[in-house]
Amino acid sequence: MLKIMIIGATSVIAQETARFFATEGAEFFLVGIPADKLVVIKDDLVARGAKRAEVYEADLTDFDKHPQIIESAVQAMGSIDAVLIAHGTLGNQKAAEASVEVALKEINLNLLSNISLLTLLGNYFEKQRRGCIAVISSVAGDRGRGSNYVYGTAKAGTTTFMQGLRSRLAKSGVAVVTIKPGLVDTPMTADIKKNFLFSDPATVGKAIYLGMKKGKDTVYAPWFWRYIMAIIIHIPEFIFKKMSL
């Protein structure tokens, strides 16, 4: 059965994805904070059919601990077949504009922690010569917008890093899956007024599950965001900069 490591396991999207793997009897190594919520998720996955689940509490901005997280996962499960990186914060764009500190904090969690983890995991999977690395990026990384470009920058960086990693690991038979959710109804977006573009986390989780199973390069979740973003990235800049998006 698949041995899956989930980093940022308390993410609702990550949970929904994990539930699909759980019904197949997968094994999990759940990383994140806080420990009591990880245990809630562990119990859920086991009840839904997971063979086992281990929890590992870790603050992902503590980069020095990253090697230890991965070593612990390998030790606990023997090997890792797939990893899903799902942690992140939406942040407050206005606050990030007003404060360098806030802006860099966003970049630190949403981009630099990914680069740290992906560097270590890239080497692990390259050596293993099989497996799947999936990261939840965002459609927000496809084009910078006035309303959340700090978050968008972190996601664009993640997407570009993943592109490069994909080319490198293709030779080793490792799938590198960039996931770009659109608007999803999760605690992260609790304060945003919902409209018809919002998706259910379960729908997004299913798209990620299938994307990881098939080893796709890029997964827009749900699929229609591929077309929305195709339009958005082709709007000429002289018009785009005047739009309030």
């Binding site: 539930r19 839904r48 409209n195 998706s199 259910d200």
Partner: peptide, 9 residues
């Protein structure tokens, strides 16, 4: 895996 909610509920 979870019941799709009516997110515009």
């Amino acid at each position: 895996m979870t019941t799709p909610l009516n997110r515009l509920k």
